[in-house]
Structures are given as structure tokens and as C-alpha cells.
Write a protein that binds this DNA or RNA. Structure first.
Length: 128
DNA sequence: AGCGTGACGAGTA
DNA sequence: ATACTCGCCACGC
């Protein structure tokens, strides 16, 4: 967390406004339909700029305003520290989960990326 | 300028 | 399936 710091919008005329990149990331996050998820990499690729880590940083800083639990890691592992919260949303939305069949002792389920992953088909309007 | 650090991802062992 | 490595990019020190 040493890298994170408030958006020093040096030059920006609107202190309340988020960096444009962050704004775009959050915008995509809001497009993800309930019951589906998008990986950091997918979001970055869809935006056509930045990378998974950049998307991750944005979510870490401003994700609170959007359905953050729908932006996930490619391997389907739930967010450290938010596992239960995310899990609650997933169960409520019916997001495909992969519950380990054996030795589930204290084992937190992971997302079933094969089915939960959403590529953005259908909302293409606006992306050119 | 270089180095370390991340809500990452893919490849390899 | 797990563990480790390397590539990636922006940012803080």
C-alpha cells in the first residue's frame, strides 16, 4: 500500500473529479451485469490502455463507489479481506461459484470463471 | 536515476 | 492443483 496516494490532480480543474482513466475503469465496472464478473485484465483490455495492475489500483482506491465484487482476479480467487462480503453478493446474484467438493474445511469457494466471466457482449454500443 | 511494491496474468516446474 | 518466475505499468521513496 505504499504506492497508493491520493490523486494529486496537479493541473486538474476539478478536485472532486477522478482521473480520467479511473473514471473509465469505474464506468466499465458498473456495466458488468449481476451474476457475472470481469477480470482486471479484461477491463484493461477492453479499455485498450493500462494493464491489470492499473485497473487493480483504481479499484483499490475508488472501487467503493461501484460493484467492486464484479471485478475479479483471473484465477477466481476472492479478494483478500473482502471474501465474505464478496461471497454474500455472489450468492445473492447467483454468480457461478466453484465450491470445492472435497476437503472444504474452512475453504472459501472461488469463482467459476469458465461461466461467470463476462466479455461485455451486447453493451458494445459506445466502444466503437 | 534506480528500486521496491502492488485488488494482475500467463507460463513453467 | 500448488509454487515460483517473469513481464507488465504506474507510483512512492
Amino acid at each position: 500500500m505504499s504506492q497508493e496516494s491520493l490523486p494529486s490532480d496537479s493541473g486538474s480543474a476539478h478536485p472532486d473529479a477522478l482521473p480520467e482513466y479511473a473514471e473509465r475503469v469505474l464506468e466499465v465496472a458498473e456495466l458488468i451485469p449481476p451474476g457475472r464478473v470481469m477480470t482486471y485484465g479484461d477491463v484493461a483490455e477492453w479499455l485498450g490502455e493500462g494493464g491489470p495492475r492499473q485497473v487493480g489500483r483504481v479499484m483499490a482506491l475508488y472501487g467503493g463507489a461501484v460493484p467492486w465484487w464484479r471485478v475479479v482476479r483471473a484465477d477466481g480467487v476472492l479478494l483478500p479481506g473482502h471474501e465474505l462480503r464478496a461471497l454474500g453478493h455472489y450468492r445473492a446474484e447467483g454468480t457461478p461459484l466453484r465450491e470445492a467438493g472435497r476437503a472444504t474445511e474452512g475453504h472459501v469457494p472461488r469463482l467459476d470463471m469458465k461461466h461467470a466471466r463476462w466479455d461485455g457482449a451486447g453493451h458494445t454500443e459506445g466502444h466503437t
